[in-house]
């Protein structure tokens, strides 16, 4: 795994996700943080070796739905997995994100096991 991009407006949640990635023993070389979709797109442009994105749905400035839509303009679903990490379990927003090209989703609150299960198909 090269770099992982975590997009979430909560710094607390970004820290939790980083910790859970370690707990789940998912090998990550480097983690890049962004607090909304606009920052996420900028980070992606500056770091073409990002190999996985974990994104919140409800964020100010640019939400996770618009972010996924924008990512898929330049990156195919098979080339860059995007996993939504959201409180909107099974809701309309998650369905929309999946239709727009998200590869999966994890509901908050989550356990290290649920993160591992969601990421397993996409990490080595």
């Amino acid at each position: 795994m090269n770099k992982v991009l975590i997009v979430d407006d909560s710094s607390t949640m970004r820290k939790i996700i980083m910790r859970v990635l370690r707990q789940a023993e998912i090998a990550v070389d480097n983690v890049i943080e962004a607090s909304n979709g606009i920052e996420g797109l900028a980070a992606l442009g500056a770091n073409p070796d990002i190999g996985l994105i974990l994104s919140d749905v409800n964020m100010p400035e640019m939400n996770g739905i618009d972010f996924v839509k924008a990512v898929r303009v330049s990156h195919a679903k098979e080339a860059l997995p995007v996993i939504m990490v959201t409180t909107e379990g099974g809701g309309a927003m998650v369905n929309t994100a999946m239709e727009l090209g998200a590869n999966g989703y994890v509901c908050k609150p989550f356990t290290p096991e649920s993160i591992r299960s969601a990421l397993e198909p996409f990490v080595t």
């Binding site: 409800n58 964020m59 409180t87 909107e88 809701g91 927003m93 609150p109």
Partner: peptide, 25 residues
């Protein structure tokens, strides 16, 4: 973030069965 997660869980349990809801930040 704690409030966000509690509201999301409440939405899944008590609101989603009755229609389409969205959450704020």
């Amino acid at each position: 973030e704690c409030t966000n997660m509690v509201t999301g869980s409440l939405k899944t349990r008590a609101l989603d069965p009755y229609g389409v809801f969205s959450l704020g930040v």
